[in-house]
Design a protein around this nucleic acid. Structure first.
Length: 555
RNA sequence: GGGCUUGUGGCUUAGCCAGGAUAGAGCGCCGGGCUUCUAACCCGGAUGUCGGGGGUUCGAAUCCCUCCAGGCCCGCCA
């Protein structure tokens, strides 16, 4: 908080001094805490050299009361701001407190939808990119003080589900002992698709199921519900293993049953863009959409887009900020949805799109049975983590080794996914998934565990702030930036920024650890270093928790 | 064909929206470091036309145009 307030103080001081709004203020990199390149743009206006302007501005700014505690200096054309020791000391002490990086409670109610995979087979390594991005954002939003509800939108009446139901009716099913519901549903779904390819005539039976479920035929509704529930129960187990929790599961069919879909369709029918020719569709070509946005079929049944519209109107009216995490394949439909909601005068969602995860042999497909399931991934990574823990800490009891392995595996999986910017498509790689070294979740956990170990051995100590080593200063500087990073993550909805921050903090701590003795130092130096270790430990823990990773105290 | 998006050392990637100070990392490679607070660690080295070309600018990985390559989308599916 302190640093972000300082940022705006410096910004307005600069604006006053140079008389323009854009003051080119940015992170000072390795040169300073903050720096400005405004002298370049002033140089042209004033017809004087940038360095000269910077020097004068530095003098003026140095005399300002509101910048007390900040050292301003000109280095060539650059205007550098160095935050003074008193301010840093306050920030470091703040960083030792639980909840560092959190903000006071806010009024704005937020709803975040993530994962929402079709219940026709287990979550795979593509789906969990959605889960991990979504859950990390959820944790960050909560930490940032927002009242948040996390929702899973259950697509319980799509064609895929009709195929599953048809499969349960028509495919001989031999139970597999110990098989999870979602894997069972996938087995039926894959077999049903194969069968339907052989018997195209049976497709009409699937269509009939879809009509019956929309009209509310009790028997069909029960069969759909039962298939979906079986799959969803499997999802719940996987989601729990991933550390992700939804507050509410919203069933798509509810928006048919409660009349919302009908209501939105009748509202839409009065729009200028609306056309009815048996079907009901919107012409959004004025907004750059070539394709017709069909909402109701000629047989009278609604299309996914119509139910989605009803769902989003419901969210818009009950929350102040609506966030969806969706795959890149939903970009077009998402943009159409946003445009339509705007035309209807409803609050559109902020959509976080993530690009696809594919396998080395090509794209994943539940229908074709070509996917690596999240359960498989977690099992394998946990197995490897257990091997690793056992070879490093053979003296620990088995139960504890299993517990550490579980946490390490989750850290590896979550971090491996969240560290990559969502707009990069990726290829799933077992070697990378099983890597517990640098730029991994376990690496950051390890730094945390090391800090814990020092603090445990230290016993009680007095708080102090007297950094002298460059490694200490670097650590201090990074720790004080944490609240700014959290603010950026929830503003821009970019969880990978937090992943990068945590890894950098671990890097700096490990270097500090190597070069700077803590327990062996004495007097105020020892207390100062222990305070810094405590601040690091706490900041790492806060960041790890926001990433959904357990801050292990030993590993 | 049209739209969206990505292209940064051998591989993976940050930085790009809000243009500036030697383009950061990791893996792999080469060479070092455990009688010292947990070596899942640390230090040093080699490796870069920031996809190609043009433009804007005092200054471009970053902005604009264009071309090339990959991914996604373009259904009365979800």
């Amino acid at each position: 908080m302190m640093l972000s307030r300082l940022y705006s103080t410096i910004e307005s001081a600069l604006q006053e001094v140079c008389g323009q709004k854009d003051v080119h203020l940015s992170d000072g990199g390795s040169h300073a805490d903050l720096s400005s390149t405004v002298s370049f743009s002033l140089a042209k206006k004033l017809r004087r050299s940038p360095a000269e302007i910077a020097r004068e501005m530095a003098e003026t700014l140095s005399r300002r009361e509101d910048l007390a505690g900040v050292r301003v200096e000109a280095l060539g054309p650059y205007l550098n701001f160095h935050i003074g020791p008193e301010l840093l000391e306050t920030a470091i002490i703040e960083a030792t407190q639980p909840g560092y990086g959190s903000f006071p409670a806010r009024e704005e109610r937020v709803v975040l939808e993530h994962t929402s995979a079709n219940p026709n087979g287990p979550l795979h390594v593509g789906h969990i990119r959605n889960t991990i991005i979504g859950d990390t954002l959820a944790r960050c939003l909560r930490k940032a003080g927002y009242p948040l509800e996390v929702q899973y939108y259950v697509n319980d009446m799509g064609r895929q589900i009709a195929i599953v139901v048809w499969g349960f009716q028509n495919i001989p099913d031999t139970p597999v002992p110990g098989e999870k519901g979602d894997h069972h549903v996938a087995r039926i779904y894959i077999a049903a698709n194969r069968e339907l390819e052989k018997r195209p005539d049976a497709v009409a039976e699937v269509d009939l199921l879809m009509q019956r479920v929309e009209s509310g035929d009790p028997q069909t509704v029960r069969e759909f519900r039962s298939a979906v529930t079986e799959c969803l129960d499997g999802f719940l187990v996987t989601l729990a293993r991933l550390g992700a929790k939804h507050d509410r599961f919203v069933w798509e069919s509810d928006f048919i049953r409660n009349g919302d879909t009908q209501r939105v369709l009748s509202k839409v029918s009065h729009m200028d863009e609306c056309h009815e020719d048996g079907r009901l569709w919107l012409d959004l070509s004025a907004f750059g959409f070539e394709k017709e946005y069909v909402l109701r079929r000629s047989d009278g049944t609604s299309v996914y887009a119509a139910r989605d519209l009803a769902y989003h109107i419901w969210k818009a009216r009950n929350f102040d900020r609506v966030i969806d995490v969706l795959g890149a394949d939903h970009k077009l439909i998402g943009a159409q949805l946003v445009t339509t909601l705007r035309l209807l005068g409803e609050r559109p969602p902020e959509i976080v799109h993530f690009e696809f995860v594919s396998l080395p042999e090509g794209s994943m497909s539940t229908r074709a049975g070509k996917f690596v399931s999240a359960d498989e991934l977690l099992d394998e990574v946990t197995r490897r983590a257990y091997e690793e823990v056992t070879s490093r800490r053979p003296e620990l009891p088995g139960a504890q080794r299993h517990e550490i392995a579980r946490s390490v595996a989750l850290a590896a999986v979550r971090y491996d996914i969240v560290k990559i910017s969502p707009d990069k498509s990726t290829v799933f790689d077992w070697k990378e998934a099983l890597d517990f070294e640098r730029q991994s979740g376990p690496y950051i956990q390890y730094a945390h565990a090391r800090a814990c170990s020092i603090l445990e051995k230290a016993g009680s100590f007095g708080t102090a702030y007297a950094p002298e080593d460059p490694h200490e200063h670097a650590l201090v500087r990074h720790i004080t930036r944490f609240p700014l990073v959290m603010e950026n993550v929830v503003r821009d909805l970019k969880p990978h920024l937090l992943a990068a921050y945590a890894r950098e903090l671990a890097d700096l701590f490990n270097t500090f650890y190597h070069f700077v003795p803590v327990l062996k130092s004495g007097g105020v130096l020892r207390n100062s270093r222990l305070t810094l270790v405590l601040a690091t430990r706490n900041t790492l823990a806060e960041a790890l928790q926001a990433l959904g990773i357990d801050p292990l105290t030993t590993m």
